[in-house]
């Protein structure tokens, strides 16, 4: 995070010293694009908070530890797709689940869909890509997430 700010600051400083007018234009562009997207972002966060309320962490844990790994797999895919969590929450959670005996395959399905498939980010994605492209991207991501999870299961000897 600090590096990102540092980098942006350096880039900005370099830009200012190279061409003042161009830099002002850049900042104006940044400002305009930010405000274009702000309402959609707020809506997204609202969706996420409501979703996380409806599907709290404990419920996720309970379902993923299911004895039948395929049911766990199914729920992992489902939870991962509809919720969004920052990575620094998601991975520690995966670490805890792993210690509790959740299969790697299930964790992989959860982590993959969490990051690649976004039902809650859909309104945002739709603004940039359009409904059709956003739908297709999410569908293909879901497919990829499942394949990756299965391969993971294979390498950890959990598949059979």
């Amino acid at each position: 995070m600090i590096y990102l700010y540092g980098f942006a600051f350096l880039a900005l400083a370099a830009s200012f010293s190279a061409n003042f007018k161009k830099t002002v234009l850049a900042l104006k562009t940044a400002w305009r694009e930010f405000f274009q997207i702000l309402p959609t972002l707020v809506i997204m966060v609202i969706l996420v908070t409501i979703l996380l309320f409806l599907v709290p962490d404990q419920v996720i844990v309970a379902y993923l530890r299911n004895h039948d790994k395929w049911i766990g797999f199914l729920f992992a895919t489902l939870f991962g797709s509809i919720t969004i969590m920052p990575g620094f929450i998601a991975f520690p959670l995966c670490g805890i689940l792993l210690k509790k005996g959740v299969a790697y395959m299930v964790l992989s399905a959860f982590a993959n869909t969490l990051m690649m498939v976004g039902v809650a980010t859909f309104p945002l994605e739709k603004r940039y890509f359009g409904t059709k492209a956003a739908l297709m991207r999410n569908a293909s991501s879901l497919f990829i997430a499942i394949i990756v999870a299965l391969v993971t299961g294979f390498f950890y000897g959990e598949l059979l």
Partner: peptide
């Protein structure tokens, strides 16, 4: 949660959008 997540997103916004702006020009 709302405040927490919003903050999480908003704090990366300034550098990201500044870089996008610089990229565009």
């Amino acid at each position: 949660d709302f405040v927490y997540f919003s903050w999480d997103i908003l704090k990366v916004m300034p550098p990201v959008f500044i870089l996008i702006g610089l990229f565009e020009v």
